[in-house]
């Protein structure tokens, strides 16, 4: 007898359609996808071949267009047919470029550093560009260039191409060339997200996922504050009290926003992440790698929140 499991073609069709419908309110999107999935199953059982059934449905793009016009959702502007994926890849490209800059120009090479040197003498250390010449700058930009190529890959091959990029980026991190592997971690996390989020069955996180991730988000927000607070107790921090207090209050406010799943709090997280990355670049002291990683993780969480915890379409639900 006929299998009731959807065939690969039907699955791929639904995945593509799901991508095209990304900006629709979640509830309506789910109903349309479910109806069409059942339709293709019914047609298969009625004796049509898989490709006949899928062909009769019409192009996913057309079905998406019809859905938008029926439901009064405006055509997406500028985001292309793959808004979630493009946003993530775009972010990864930005991070890759930023990483290339910090690795080539700002990161000081510690090799040959005299053990007696204090942090003030780090200024005299050479950057990678000074050490290896401008070629290294071009080399560090390779990940960014490869990611840009990803945007040109046809939609149906995008998932595999993204997966290959994610694996390559992970290898880059693990192989740790010129001691810069760690700096590519934020970019790598974002690429991994790009292999998953645009292809998820539901664009919005389920209740369990949402709760767990929001708790993690709050921890990310509050951990540095807690570390600082313990420092205050021991009297290590004095001069920075007022800015630190403002910062702590801001982190607390963002955490409350995250728990309430406010969209604006994810924008705040995103801005906070970018700020941390900038601080890491221009104030590259001993903690450069830590601040960079922290900024990358915060930024990724902000993007995750905007795309999955509180997607734009979710508001109209």
């Amino acid at each position: 007898m006929f299998s009731t499991k959807p065939d690969v073609t039907a699955k791929r069709y639904l995945r593509q359609l799901s991508g095209y419908l990304a900006d629709l309110p979640e509830a309506q999107r789910r109903v349309i996808l479910q109806d069409i999935s059942e339709h293709s199953e019914e047609s298969r059982i009625s004796g049509r071949t898989e490709s006949e059934a899928i062909g009769a449905l019409g192009e996913p793009r057309e079905v998406a267009k019809a859905s938008r016009s029926e439901l009064g959702v405006p055509e997406p502007r500028g985001t292309g047919p793959w808004p979630v994926g493009n946003t993530l890849i775009g972010t990864a490209i930005a991070l890759a470029t930023f990483t290339a800059a910090i690795v080539s120009f700002f990161l000081r090479n510690a090799e040959g550093q005299h053990p007696d040197y204090t942090s003030s003498t780090q200024r005299s250390l050479t950057s990678l560009v000074e050490l290896y010449g401008p070629g290294i700058a071009v080399l560090t930009l390779v990940p960014a260039a490869l990611l840009a190529v990803l945007l040109l890959v046809p939609l149906r091959m995008r998932r595999w191409a993204t997966l290959i990029c994610a694996v390559a980026a992970s290898v880059l991190v693990i192989s740790n060339p010129i001691d810069a592997g760690l700096f590519y971690v934020p970019m790598t996390i974002v690429i991994w997200l790009a292999t998953m989020l645009p292809f998820a069955k539901s664009l919005q996180a389920g209740r369990g996922e949402s709760l767990v991730l929001r708790i993690i988000g709050v921890l990310i927000m509050l951990l540095p504050v807690a570390l600082l607070a313990s420092g205050v107790e021991r009297g290590n921090v004095g001069v920075f009290m007022i800015p630190a207090l403002i910062w702590a209050v801001a982190c607390l406010a963002i955490s409350i926003g995250i728990m309430l799943n406010w969209r604006i709090s994810y924008w705040a997280v995103l801005a906070y992440g970018v700020l941390a990355l900038i601080v890491a670049v221009f104030d590259s002291g001993m903690l450069v790698a830590a601040i960079w990683m922290f900024g990358g993780i915060v930024l990724t969480f902000g993007i995750y929140g905007l795309l999955r915890l509180r997607p734009r379409a979710g508001i109209t639900r």
């Binding site: 359609l17 309506q28 109903v31 349309i32 109806d35 069409i36 339709h39 009769a56 449905l57 019409g58 192009e59 996913p60 057309e62 079905v63 019809a66 859905s67 029926e70 439901l71």
Partner: peptide, 13 residues
């Protein structure tokens, strides 16, 4: 109709 898929958004509306 030529596109069966477009029927479902219509039915939803």
């Amino acid at each position: 109709t030529a596109s069966e898929g477009s029927l479902y958004p219509l039915l939803a509306r």
